[in-house]
Amino acid sequence: MKQEISALMDGELFEDQADALLDKLKRHPEAQQDWENYHLIGDALRQPDHICRSFEASFHERLQAEPTIIAPYNRTSQRIRNFALSAAASVMALALVAWLSLQVGNEPAPQLATVQQNTISSVRPASSQADDYLAAHQEFSPSADVRGAASYIHAVSGR
C-alpha cells in the first residue's frame, strides 16, 4: 500500500490503478494518514519556511465556521447560483488569504469577523514561536558542545 501511495504521488500509476487506490484511500483512514505524511515529508524536503500539518482539517474547520450564504430561490436561479458560487469562492479565498497571513510574520494577525475564535485550533505565527523552542533546545543539545559560540549565530544575525 505504502509503495502504491508513493507511486501515486510521483504520478507513476495508470489511471485505473490510481482510481482504485484513491478509492482505497477513502476507505482506510490509516492509509490517508500515510498519504498526508508523505506529502508532509515531500514539503519538508522542499524546505519552505513553514509547513502546515493538517491543512485540510483546519481549513475545513474554518470553513464550517463561515456564515452560510443563503440565496432565495427564484427564476434567475442560474444567475444567483453563479453569484453564490463566486461569493463562496471569494469567502474561501478570503479565508485562505487570512490563513496565509497568519502563517507569515510575527505581527498579531487580523481576525476575520466571520470566524469564531474558539473554533480555530491551528494558527499561530511560526517563526517567533519556533525560535523559542529552538533556543530552549539549543541549551542542551550536544551539537552545541563542539560548535561553541557558533550556536548563538542566529541571535546576532540581522534576520
Partner: peptide, 12 residues
Amino acid sequence: EESYIHSGLSGQ
C-alpha cells in the same frame, strides 16, 4: 484556551 496552537513543521 486563549492561545492559537500552531501545529505543523518548521525548520532552521
